[in-house]
């Protein structure tokens, strides 16, 4: 957040002031017809800040490490950027490296992707439990025909080239099989 944004502001600081919105457009339709729709453009600008735990997680990713967090006095390691042990209701103040090897705990085969970052369909979207973690995170499984993906299958993350590592979840492009034997599915219950 820029320093100027930190100042107390009680009125709009959007570029151009208050009156920057495009005008409302009413479709030109004949007399007597009911207007079914008007388009009223609206834009709001937000400057998000990630918070402590996501910052730690993203910094780990930038170093090629998959981090989880543990609350003081509790065992469960939660991978990713949650920042809370939801059972203890305490912040996961201790960073713990998890994985990178992991197990698929559940998955589906996606035939209709969402957003620009979706891989070509069909692809496998999976819940993935990194070794040492208590709960799974979402990821894409590639490098194997989609119909051969299994619950319990062992996978490892595939990272972007080192020079492209940044503060983003996209550092891990996808997960691929390790070829190790599957983990029995019954052992994964409660860790999705």
């Amino acid at each position: 957040m820029a320093e100027s944004d930190m100042e107390d502001r009680s009125t709009s600081t959007m570029p151009g002031g208050l009156w920057t919105q495009p005008s409302v457009s009413v479709p030109d339709i004949g007399d007597g017809e009911v207007i079914q729709r008007i388009t009223e453009p609206a834009s709001l600008h937000y400057s998000y800040t990630p918070g402590r735990a996501p910052t730690r997680f993203l910094r780990g990713l930038a170093e090629g490490k998959l981090l989880g967090g543990r609350a003081e006095g509790h065992d469960a390691v939660y991978p990713g950027s949650r920042g809370m042990d939801p059972v203890a209701a305490r912040p996961t103040v201790e960073s713990v490296e998890v994985g990178p090897d992991a197990t698929v705990t559940a998955f589906c085969i996606v035939h209709i992707g969402f957003g620009e970052k979706a891989p070509p369909t069909p692809f496998v979207s999976a819940l993935i439990l990194p070794d040492g973690a208590a709960a799974s995170m979402y990821g894409t499984v590639l490098g194997i025909p989609y119909e051969e993906v299994r619950i319990g299958m062992r996978v490892r993350p595939v990272w972007v080239p080192e020079e492209e590592l940044g503060l983003t979840s996209e550092n891990i492009t996808h997960w691929e099989p390790t070829g190790e034997p599957d983990v029995p599915a019954e052992q994964l219950k409660g860790h999705m």
């Binding site: 009680s10 009125t11 959007m14 208050l18 709001l44």
Partner: peptide, 27 residues
């Protein structure tokens, strides 16, 4: 803090008549 509060609050107004004028909460 992530948004521009007076402007965000203008979205709580009637979307047909007041909203398109973008009167902020201070105004």
């Amino acid at each position: 803090s992530p948004g521009d509060l007076p402007r965000v609050l203008s979205r709580q107004l009637d979307p047909y008549y007041y909203g398109p004028l973008w009167p902020d909460s201070v105004a």
